[in-house]
Design a protein around this nucleic acid. Structure first.
Length: 588
RNA sequence: GGCCCGGUAGUUCAGAUGGUUAGAACGCUAGCCUGUCACGCUAGAGGCCGAGGGUUCGAGUCCCUUCCGGGUCGCCA
């Protein structure tokens, strides 16, 4: 840097350094020119420090400093000195001191930035992502990525300390049926054949168990070609692990220890272990989702058996046709205005419901959208069933059960947020007893709810052929504040059982061998019982960083249509490249 | 694929019922200013109102199409 070497980073300077000559580098966050005195806020990833250029101290350097603009890259030499009493800035971490510059090197000039590099400035998503390298200069985003680094580092250390080996698995893999849509990579050497990028290293890690590595961990990119969401990207990172000679409790307890330690170390937060456990059924019944936010109550209540016999035709018919009627009682929401309630109705419609009935359990009177279709006694009965208190708003949705659950589950969180009753804490929850299978209307067959290698609960095994929807899986999801941050299962390690599983999923023996022959073969040569899980690192960090969008914890994320605004990916390729791959683009 | 929201100076936004020359703040440029830290003051530059078509004497505003971005349902073993 033209003869100077950095001696300290900006955020690390404190009163302890007073009197020292330091060499600093960084970007200009802000320059304030007062005429014959210039202040420059110099930023690097550790923080911001104020530089002072004084025309009476060195006119030549001052002249040079007048040229300084935002985002210039500087290297300066100067003396750390205390600020005068009046000049102390309590809002700044380094606000007690400043650096009086006696040597200035402008290492790089900068054009006017298309985004304002400042956490206080609001920037549109498009520009943030198009100029991601500038957005990433913001302290808040840097903080998120540093947090992400700390989480990954803790995970590596923790699992290594517990006997897990970090082993890499291939990115160029084989497409398998079931699950998400694959990202495909055409093979140049094998015409007409494709690699698939891994949706997860699932089979490889099981084979590592067969190989005897006993415990495996990998922090690894996974790819799923599905539509994006606020908490979903097409490429994302898993903390992936697998253990031999274990059952569910072994996997769950070491992961509780991991999460407890992680939150203590990285966040300074104590979390209680063991975590609460809840069956899938209970989660769906009471919260309408398999990833409930249990930090507050307002649970769903099923009033279908009341509704079936009430005087309101819509309710009656819904239940008769196999649907259900459920409600939540929102304490304190009885004071909502008509307009606010109408908004809740819109919210329910937005989430798939046809509508929402409501009852205000007021102090003096009860008002309800059902006043004309139900008797007073019936409305009272609903209030009773809801265990509603005076001042509550009872919200009722009737529809097909999954629609009711989706809509009321979302409404429950929406109202809680509106009422501000969600405590600021971290509440972990295991969701267990998932069904092994799920019926797919689209494919007209059963599909694996988790994946086809999941072990059924022992006593349910014999229902695989006879009563598949009753079979429970040895699977578990770890849920944090309403987000699924990870999940896993105990795996099938018996060849015969794995074959039964494939058969139940509708694969012919040939299909199964074509797709998973290597796994079935491997199981013939001595397989330890094994199981594991995988965390969505991005989602976990998102929650820890208190963000509501996964893009804020990923350095270079993609937008909703899976493209990258910065690089322009995906892009076209040369005709020559296509020819080598024997690929022709068909115009639509 | 469905539904909802948005696209106006470099940036973030305002532009009722269609009506002169499209505004503000920040940023930018120039000048003044020795204790600022959202520095202050003065002056100035800066616009294909996402694109295309239509209605109209007249469109940023109304209609249609399309592109882009966000949220969500489907989808995500």
């Amino acid at each position: 840097m033209k003869g100077l070497k950095r001696t300290i980073m900006n955020g690390y300077i404190s009163e302890k350094n007073i009197g020292e000559t330091v060499v600093l580098t960084g970007w200009v966050a802000k320059a304030r020119n007062l005429g014959s005195l210039i202040f420059v806020d110099l930023r690097d990833r550790t923080g911001i420090v104020q530089l002072v250029f004084d025309s009476t101290v060195d006119e030549e350097i001052f002249k040079k400093a007048e040229k300084i603009r935002n985002e210039y890259v500087l290297c300066v030499k100067g003396v750390v000195r205390p600020r005068g009493k009046e000049a102390i800035n309590p809002k700044m971490a380094t606000g007690m001191i400043e650096v009086c510059v006696d040597d200035l090197r402008i290492l790089s000039e900068a054009e006017t930035s298309p985004i304002h590099v400042d956490d206080k400035a609001v920037t549109g998503e498009v520009n943030r992502l198009k100029y991601r390298y500038l957005d990433l200069r913001k302290p808040s985003i840097q903080k998120n990525l540093i947090l992400r680094h700390e989480v990954a580092r803790y995970a590596r250390n923790f699992f290594a300390d517990n006997g897990f080996l970090e082993i890499e698995t291939p990115m160029l893999s084989k497409s398998t049926p079931e699950g998400a849509r694959d990202y495909l990579v055409p093979s140049r050497i094998h015409h007409g054949k494709f690699y698939a990028l891994p949706q997860s290293p699932q089979l490889y890690k099981q084979l590592l168990m067969v190989a005897g590595f006993d415990r495996y961990i990998q922090i690894v990119k996974c790819f799923r070609d599905e539509d994006l969401r606020a908490d979903r990207q097409p490429e994302f990172t898993q903390i992936d692990l697998e253990m031999s000679f274990v059952d569910m409790d072994d996997v769950m307890s070491i992961n509780e220890e991991f999460l407890k330690g992680l939150f203590k170390k990285v966040m300074g937060v104590d979390v209680e272990t063991p975590f609460r456990r809840m069956s899938y059924k209970e989660a769906m019944d009471k919260y309408g989702t398999d990833k409930p936010d249990t930090r507050f109550g307002m649970e769903l209540k099923d009033i279908s058996s009341f509704a079936e016999n009430c005087s309101f035709g819509v309710f009656k018919d819904t239940v008769k046709n196999g649907g259900c009627v459920k409600l939540i009682s929102a304490s304190g929401a009885g004071s909502f205005s008509r307009k606010e309630i109408d908004k809740l109705v819109e919210f329910v419609k937005f989430h798939g419901g046809k509508g929402m009935a409501w009852i205000i359990n007021g102090e003096n009177e009860t008002r309800s959208s059902l006043g004309k279709v139900l008797t007073e006694e019936e409305i009272k009965e609903i209030i009773n069933l809801a265990e509603s208190n005076v001042g509550d708003l009872v919200c009722i949705v009737s529809d097909k059960c999954d629609v009711v659950n989706t809509a009321l589950g979302a409404l429950r969180c929406h109202i809680a947020e509106k009422l501000g009753i969600i405590p600021d804490k971290y509440e972990f929850l295991w969701v267990t007893d998932f069904p092994l299978f799920e019926y797919s209307e689209e494919e007209d067959r059963y599909v694996a709810k988790h994946h086809p290698f999941t072990m059924p609960v022992d006593e349910d095994i014999d229902m695989i052929e006879t009563n598949p929807e009753k079979v429970r899986a040895k699977a578990y999801d770890i849920v944090l504040n309403g987000y699924e941050i990870g999940g896993g299962s105990i795996r099938i390690y018996d060849n015969a059982l794995q074959k039964r599983m494939f058969k139940a999923l509708g694969f012919s023996e040939e299909d199964a061998y074509e797709r998973f022959g290597f796994l079935l073969d491997a199981f013939r040569y001595g397989t330890p019982p094994h199981g594991g899980m995988a965390y969505g690192l991005d989602r976990l960090v998102m929650i820890m960083a208190n963000c509501d969008n996964i893009r804020d914890v990923i350095a270079f994320p993609k937008v909703q249509n899976a493209s990258c605004l910065m690089t322009g990916a995906p892009g076209t390729v040369e005709e020559k490249q296509l020819k080598e791959l024997n690929i022709k683009i068909v115009e639509e």
